[in-house]
């Protein structure tokens, strides 16, 4: 039993190493920047995954581009801009607030406000009855 567990753990560790060491960087800062970017950028084909979680053809190419740009010393903003120009707002895993999606960001608070207000109006109106 112990043997199998050890074997299992060995395989597990191989897997982890393999997925980390594909890209090599000169500084830990660059590596951190790369990791951050592939986390916030979305895979255009798979849509529910970010680049780091996807190995589709397009994702691999985009990761390679991010890697090259990070090594060339480009800033997060420059790289994100490059992606947005080609794939649109969609490429960001978490969309930025803009006038097109303002409703999505404000709607929950708006609904909460409406619900609370109507509750209080109802409550005040029925206060007498409730106390009886």
């Amino acid at each position: 039993m112990k043997k199998y567990v050890t074997l299992f753990l060995i395989f597990l560790s191989f897997y982890t190493f393999a997925s980390v060491d594909v890209y090599e960087f000169e500084t830990p800062e660059q590596e951190a920047q790369f990791r951050h970017l592939i986390d916030v950028l979305r895979c255009p084909t798979c849509q529910n995954q970010n680049l780091s979680g996807s190995n589709s053809l397009v994702s691999e190419d985009l990761k390679q581009i991010v890697y090259e740009k990070v090594k060339a010393g480009e800033s997060d903003q420059e790289i994100v801009q490059f992606m947005k120009k080609r794939y649109g707002e969609f490429i960001l895993f978490e969309p930025e607030v803009s006038k097109d999606n303002l409703i999505l960001w404000t709607a929950p608070f708006l609904f909460l406000f409406i619900a609370l207000t109507s509750f209080f109006i109802w409550y005040r109106k029925n206060k007498g009855e409730l106390n009886e």
Binding site: P44, T45, V58, D61, L62, R86, Y87
Partner: peptide
């Protein structure tokens, strides 16, 4: 061959 022109066009499949 490298898929770079595709990316310039925003191709995703």
């Amino acid at each position: 061959v490298k898929g770079r022109v595709g990316i310039e066009f925003g191709v995703y499949g």
